[in-house]
């Protein structure tokens, strides 16, 4: 089995933007098995008051260091923020991104908001990717320098124009497709963005992988609660985001 439950010592924890927490923990087992696009199922409190773990994407994994970045949003993540010693983590889980540097010479990576973080490890492992990162405003722009250090081309866009390109990251990707070669697209972000990326990729016949999120139960494929609609009929019309995903080919899913 490539995944299990571990008590992971917190090595560092910092707020890199308002309510955005960057955590590195120690876990040789998870870090060595982790693949880009996989996620962690994180316990945020005690069993009785918070029965569900929270799925959080892996941002990076190297040697015995495992890094994830989350947004403080509800009571689970509020409580997770308070854990300073050891975090109970199940992982690595889910189907990772498909990386094939021989087949795809011109990959484009597009992320929005907290959906940019799962793309970091992917970007490190791709040859020559062009990366588009979209945020609401300058205050939310994070990891730009780090993306820049692992690829040749990182472009940041903000919805309000306060930093970088004034508009949506997908407009930049659209321009790239019109003027240049893109042979695969990787995307993670808010649903409206994923819908637009899926439509753009399919209109141009470009293979596209998207990473989805959904409210989750077990995290390993048993409980069938984190479903997403696919084009399959019958029992597997709703596939499991935790097991069949979180990464899907855009043509598989209905958003």
């Amino acid at each position: 089995m490539s995944h299990d439950v571990y008590k992971c010592k917190v090595i560092s924890k910092k707020e890199i933007a308002p309510n955005i927490i960057d955590v590195t923990v120690e876990s040789k087992e998870i870090a060595s098995a982790a693949m880009a696009g996989q996620f962690l199922h994180v316990k945020c409190g005690d069993d009785i008051s918070m029965p569900l773990r929270r799925p959080i994407s892996i941002c990076d994994a190297e040697d015995d260091k495992l890094r994830f970045i989350f947004e403080v949003k509800g009571r689970g993540t509020k409580n997770l923020l308070l854990i300073d010693d050891e975090i109970d983590i199940m992982g690595p889980l889910g189907t990772p991104f498909t990386i094939d540097n021989d087949k795809y010479k011109n990959p484009a990576v597009i992320g929005g908001g907290i959906g940019t973080y799962p793309l970091f490890k992917l970007t490190k492992e791709l040859d020559n990717p062009t990366v588009y990162l979209g945020f609401r405003s300058e205050a939310q722009v994070t990891l730009e320098d780090e993306f820049n250090s692992v690829c040749d081309m990182t472009v940041v866009a903000t919805d309000d124009g306060s930093y970088g390109y004034n508009g949506y990251a997908i407009d930049l990707l659209k321009g790239k497709i019109e003027n240049d070669v893109v042979d695969i697209i990787y995307a993670c972000g808010p649903k409206p963005m994923l819908k637009a990326v899926k439509a753009l990729a399919e209109a141009n016949n470009i293979p596209c992988q998207i990473s989805l999120e959904e409210r989750m139960g077990c995290g390993i494929g048993a409980c069938l609660t984190c479903s997403c609609e696919t084009k399959t009929e019958g029992t597997w019309k709703y596939k499991r985001v935790c097991k069949n995903g979180p990464v899907f080919w855009s043509t598989e899913v209905v958003l």
Partner: peptide, 25 residues
């Protein structure tokens, strides 16, 4: 075979969870 209910199918409540998978099997 049954396809079950559309998502979201689960949420946490105080000390519990609510689910509505709808017998996908």
């Amino acid at each position: 075979p049954r396809e079950g209910n559309p998502p979201p199918r689960i949420t946490e409540t105080y000390g519990g969870i609510l689910n509505s998978v709808g017998l996908q099997n």
